[in-house]
């Protein structure tokens, strides 16, 4: 069951194409990251699925049916910036959100406690710091304990402690079985938190899938065998090895064409060649490397396109 399904979303502003045929599915129970540099179309995508923006083409469904205002009432959303009445207190602002959502007011103290704002509940929103505003927006999204949350750059404006708190909060929400759709330009945030992701660039989907699958693509292994020369050449002869690099530490890094690296077989092979390994570790690529690769690949395809 997909919580949200998006097909061929396109958004034009005059001659500028902000979104260009974006499609993806958000499975239930996932933490779904929408990753991309600034201006790649993350907020535009979320704006369309919350009915704040009108798509030029394409459509989307919640739980397999056409979107309605009732769906939005059941989704906790933080879009772009915290939007509250500046002259009202935290509690008064949440009262408005809760009433629009058709939820009772009994949740308000609890969500304020969850984001550490309970002591400031009667202060006017205009007196809040950027981080407090952001936390109030997250509190508003948590009202009525929604099954689905849409969080656009949720750690924006928070200090390191606040960032960690929000990440822990997101993880605990996932353990409660909630689905979270999260946009971010911070690669390591997506890597640390998300299970699934879509990568956008210039309004187009570059890749989509499980975070582990995307990261695993083009895996490598770091191998060490102290004082035994010939390790590098031994690895070069192993089938499926693309490239071998000698590292400054004396270890050797071998890059494989396949995603799954057969660690056991590799160890046995080296041993049969007379080399006893004293270090063997799979190296998962950091999302950053992978992300740059993906966007590079994309550039190459652009470069290959015929010039007009």
């Amino acid at each position: 069951m997909n919580v949200l399904s998006v097909q061929q979303l396109t958004k034009r502003y005059g001659s500028i194409i902000a979104l260009d045929g974006v499609s993806f599915d958000v499975p239930q129970g996932s933490i779904f990251g929408i990753l991309g540099p600034n201006g790649s179309g993350k907020t535009t995508t979320l704006g369309i699925v919350t009915d704040v923006l009108k798509a030029t083409h394409g459509n989307y469904q919640y739980f397999g049916s056409a979107p309605t205002a009732q769906h939005r009432q059941k989704i906790g959303t933080l879009l772009e910036t915290p939007n509250f009445y500046h002259y009202l207190s935290a509690v008064e602002n949440l009262r408005i959100s809760a009433t629009i959502k058709g939820k009772g007011l009994e949740d308000i103290p609890q969500v304020l406690q969850r984001v550490n704002l309970f002591e400031r509940k009667n202060s006017a929103f205009s007196t809040f710091s950027l981080g407090m505003k952001q936390r109030l927006a997250i509190a508003a999204a948590l009202l009525g304990s929604p099954e689905v949350l849409i969080l656009d750059e949720p750690t924006n404006g928070l200090d390191p402690v606040g960032i960690t708190e929000i990440r822990e909060l997101i993880k605990s929400l996932r353990q409660e079985g909630k689905t979270i759709i999260m946009a971010s330009h911070l690669l390591d945030e997506v890597e640390k938190v998300c299970t699934h992701m879509v990568v956008l660039k210039k309004g187009k989907v570059i890749t989509e899938g499980k975070v582990n699958d995307i990261l695993a693509q083009g895996d490598s292994v770091e191998v060490g065998a102290a004082g035994q020369p010939g390790l590098a050449s031994c690895l070069r002869s192993y089938p499926g090895v693309k490239k071998v690099e000698e590292l400054p530490t004396g270890h050797v890094q071998a890059f494989f064409e396949e995603k799954e690296v057969p660690m056991g077989k590799l160890n046995a092979y080296c041993f049969s060649q007379g080399i006893t390994l004293d270090f063997l570790a799979p190296k998962r690529k950091s999302l950053e490397t992978r992300f740059l690769e993906l966007t590079e690949e994309n550039k190459t395809t652009y470069a290959k396109a015929p010039q007009h």
Partner: peptide, 21 residues
């Protein structure tokens, strides 16, 4: 215009009002 200034017109829709409401 307050709604525009505070962007609460967006938030009201996001929270589940229809545009007509």
């Amino acid at each position: 215009t307050n709604e525009y200034t505070y962007k609460t017109h967006r938030q009201n829709i996001i929270d589940g009002w229809t545009r007509l409401q």
